[in-house]
Design a protein around this nucleic acid. Structure first.
Lengths: 123, 123
DNA sequence: CAGGATCCCCTCCGATACTG
DNA sequence: CAGTATCGGAGGGGATCCTG
């Protein structure tokens, strides 16, 4: 299980900055950060340094309410991990992340007209 | 190319109501509605009757700016269709939709504690 | 360490009405 | 037919400070 570091943020899932969301703005990224196993609050804040603690807690609560993330308290340790449902979401989520990574530079602000040709679907 | 009808709304992609979004609230659904080929504005409004025209135009503009949808004007006809980039998104999107459909009733308001067991990932 | 409290802005999104 | 104009509420999300 590889440790979380700030670089992994962009590396793993550029879709964090894309308009693709789960739950709220940071939901998809949190799920991805939990993909390798349980993490503590402070551990999650390493790759997610740009979230304020309040917002990260909010996001975690949302994911919890959706049944995607489980929160465990042991003493003063708080651990977050994916539920079975959360894990089941990883596969389609990885597909979206892979897509986002592949088409990242195409997605941001479409000013290039050549890119915007129709696909001639169903023709 | 199968015609758009109001029922197709629920049938096609329950994720429309899930917290999974592309662009804005209606983005994912619009993309799915364009999956079978080009559609006119009024045609899109059939399955998307609950969107007000202003918001639908907004969503379409967003998808356009992202390079996912192309807008074509011929006379007084306006046609929307997926770009090549938009089509490339269909596969991962369908994966998410399939997941959402399968786990739909689990996702809405997690009050059942038994569901929220951790997955013991990375253990 | 893992948040909660408070403040506040700003965008999303809906309703209604109107138009070339 | 394919939108625009205008208004307005709700809440998402950030900054800052505080705490058991």
């Amino acid at each position: 299980m590889r440790p979380l570091d700030p670089q992994m943020f962009d590396e793993l899932c550029p879709s964090a900055l894309t308009p693709i969301r789960i739950g709220d703005k940071w939901g998809a990224l949190i799920v991805v950060c939990l993909a390798d196993g349980p993490r503590r609050y402070s551990e999650l804040r390493i790759p997610l340094a740009r979230i304020t603690p309040k917002v990260m807690t909010q996001s975690l609560r949302t994911l919890e309410r959706l049944g995607l993330v489980a929160r465990t308290v042991e003493g003063r340790q708080v651990t977050y991990e994916l539920t079975v449902l959360g894990v089941s979401m990883l596969e389609p989520l990885r597909a979206i992340c892979a897509w986002a990574e592949e088409h990242w530079d195409e997605l941001v602000d479409a000013t290039d007209p050549i890119r915007n040709e129709p696909a001639a679907l169903g023709a």
